[in-house]
Amino acid sequence: MGAAADPSAAGARTGHEAASALRSAGMNGNLAPVLGVHRAPGDFLDAFGRSYSSDPAVVAAAAGAFIGAQQADGVAATAKHFPGLGAAPAGANTDEEPVTIPLDSGTLRNVDEAPYRAAIAAGVDMIMPSWAVYPALDSGVPAGLSSAILRGDLRGNLGYQGVIISDAIEAGALAAFGDAGDRSVAALAAGQDLALCSARDAGQGAQATGDLAAAITGGRLNLGDVLASTERVLELRLSLR
Rank of each mutant, 00 (worst) to 15 (best):
Q71W: 11
A119Q: 05
L145N: 11
L196E: 12
A213M: 15
R23C: 01
R241V: 06
Q207W: 13
A57S: 13
D104R: 03
A88S: 06
V59T: 03
D193K: 00
L35D: 06
G178K: 00
E235F: 13
S105I: 11
V233M: 02
E17M: 02
G156W: 13
R50E: 07
A114D: 08
A19S: 02
T107R: 13
G64P: 11
V59P: 00
M128L: 09
A10G: 04
G203T: 07
A87W: 09
R232M: 01
R183F: 13
L212F: 04
P56L: 03
E170F: 12
L35Y: 04
V58D: 09
V59Y: 05
D43H: 04
S147L: 12
A168V: 02
A10D: 07
A189H: 15
R50P: 02
A214S: 10
P129N: 08
A228R: 14
K80P: 02
I101L: 13
N93A: 04
A190I: 00
A171S: 07
T78R: 00
D73H: 10
I120N: 10
V163G: 00
V34R: 01
S24F: 09
V226Y: 08
A118Q: 08
G42D: 07
A12E: 14
P129F: 08
Q204K: 00
G159A: 01
T230D: 15
S105G: 12
A121I: 08
R23H: 10
F177S: 09
A228Y: 11
A40P: 06
S166N: 05
V124I: 15
L45G: 01
G219R: 06
Q71Y: 11
L22Q: 05
S130M: 10
A79G: 10
G162T: 01
N222P: 13
V99P: 06
N110Q: 15
D201F: 05
A215Y: 10
P89C: 04
W131A: 01
A72T: 10
V163P: 04
G224D: 14
Q207V: 15
L45E: 11
A171R: 00
V99S: 00
P142K: 03
R200Y: 15
G152K: 05
L234T: 10
G203A: 08
D55N: 04
L240S: 02
Q192M: 06
V75A: 04
W131C: 02
A77R: 09
P129Y: 13
A25Q: 15
A114E: 12
P115E: 06
P142L: 02
A119W: 06
A60N: 06
A122G: 07
G218D: 11
S198I: 03
S229W: 07
G156N: 09
Q161E: 15
A88D: 08
A190E: 10
A176K: 13
A214R: 08
A202P: 08
A79M: 11
S166Q: 08
N30E: 14
R109G: 08
G203D: 14
M1G: 11
P129V: 03
V133I: 08
F48C: 06
A18W: 15
S139K: 14
L103C: 07
L221C: 01
A176Y: 13
Q70K: 00
P83G: 07
A213G: 13
A214Q: 11
A195T: 09
G123D: 15
A25L: 12
I127L: 09
A25R: 09
